[in-house]
Design a binder for these strands. Structure first.
Lengths: 261, 261
DNA sequence: CAGTGGTCTAGACCACTCA
DNA sequence: GAGTGGTCTAGACCACTGT
């Protein structure tokens, strides 16, 4: 008795056939797939059925579909690899680069960062808990950062700093001086007596929200990596939290972790 | 002159309306949305148009759609938080738990692990490079692990161990003894003279492949987190690599990183 | 059984790209 | 202009869930 595995419907069968053709290398990165109308004729189905097949592969992240042009096999992207050493004091002093700039440079990309918004706000619950500040009052400064690589937006970072630390300093008012050798907020923290000794990074991934799709210009079938980053100083006090949201196709994390006994 | 921002087509408008209703709390986690036929009538469109709206939200990971039942607001899932301390020698000895079991227990879930396949193979290129073994020969043992939490598959791990280390040992042949206090392959490595002193974890995220969807029973709109894990011993030699693939809605990473000066 | 989602059809019109 | 994807319609039948 063979198990009568129900065969998939036409749209799945077309999708499977195309996926296998891609895997077998019959279509290479950048190649154009047959048009929806051609696929429909080939598989003797309605155009909508062929279209459904294409959209399945698009949601899997295999295709780039361009209105008026066609569907193309998505080429793998060069990734920025974010390591923990990007927070290194020495690296910052020697290169004069902020963490993101240093990593982008290593990936052969040109980076720039914009700080479109700085304001005093009530912190989100998870941030308040980790910083040990009240969620009910405007106890933190919020700094929004947009990160670009080769002109393309690749990350958003929202930093929260307790008002008791940032109040009255440039952290609460200005982007750091682009000319400074301390071209990172960590340079400012050091001058305020907070030396970064360890960080906590809580990582997860999910599909982007529509506003993130718009902001980061995220194509279909690409998730975001979310990192909740906590900076801790020499007195074991958390003094800064940043929530990073990054395109998963352009960013990866690369950590070396010592194993305590 | 106002910018005549083109208004979205009906399917997007329905999707936006439903998304906002969910965000405003008009539908809570677990609530059932109106049926496709009802939505179509409400918005005076064809059923397919309402259906398209539902599938947009499903791809965003907001809905669970059940054949014959309806579309429901997806509730947030309890996550297993995987920290680097799961590799701690002391934790392993004290609890007698493998890394995964220890973390699952902390999340209040019952864990079990299956090792469905152990064999000698040619390593993938990235693995060969990191282990310093030839990719052209069957230079590694490959161990496939399936991880379950509360009976649900949540992770796949494929471990590669150089044949020069694993050959002739239980690493090449058997699952570790479930009764042993060293219920983890790291116990075996220690007996072979490889003490884990640090790990490298290279992290990225992407949409799952169809085989991963089937194996991990991944719902639509849920990405996977991929971790390429390298274990390094007291002599700075990499002795083991595992490629983890995990459902991003059920798993997160939680690392504490010391910052070198 | 009624109600729900899953899939398909055949056709239409629009919007975009490229020669 | 020809070719492509984007969207919609109106209807049909199937498969699954519940009472």
């Amino acid at each position: 008795m063979s198990t009568p595995t129900k065969e998939p419907p036409p749209s799945r069968r077309i999708a499977d056939a195309l996926r296998q053709a891609i895997e077998r290398g019959e279509y290479s990165a950048g190649d154009k797939l047959p048009s929806e109308r051609v696929l429909a004729a080939t598989y003797e189905s309605a155009r909508n059925t062929a279209r459904e097949a294409i959209s399945i592969l698009e949601a899997e992240g295999l295709l780039d579909v361009w209105h008026g042009k066609g569907a193309f096999v998505r080429p793998p992207a060069r990734m920025i690899r974010l390591g923990a050493n990007r927070y290194s004091h020495r690296l910052r002093i020697e290169t004069g680069l902020s963490p993101f700039r240093a990593e982008a440079q290593r990936a052969g990309k040109t980076a720039h960062v914009e700080v479109p918004d700085i304001r005093r706000v009530k912190p989100p619950a998870d941030v308040a808990e980790r910083l040990g500040v009240p969620a009910s009052r405007r106890s933190v400064v919020q700094r929004v950062n947009h990160y670009f690589a080769d002109g393309e937006p690749v990350q958003i970072g929202v930093t929260y700093i307790p008002w008791v630390i940032a109040g009255g300093t440039v952290l609460a008012t200005d982007a750091t001086d682009p000319q400074s050798r301390f071209n990172s907020i960590y340079g400012e923290f050091e001058q305020l007596g907070h030396r970064l000794t360890k960080v906590r990074e809580e990582i997860t991934a999910r599909m982007p929200r529509p506003d993130e799709v718009a902001m980061l210009r995220i194509p279909p079938g690409v998730p975001v990596i979310q990192v909740l980053h906590t900076g801790v100083d020499q007195d074991d006090q958390p003094f800064e939290i940043t929530r990073f949201t990054m395109r998963a196709d352009l960013n990866g994390l690369d950590y070396w972790l010592p194993i305590e006994d």
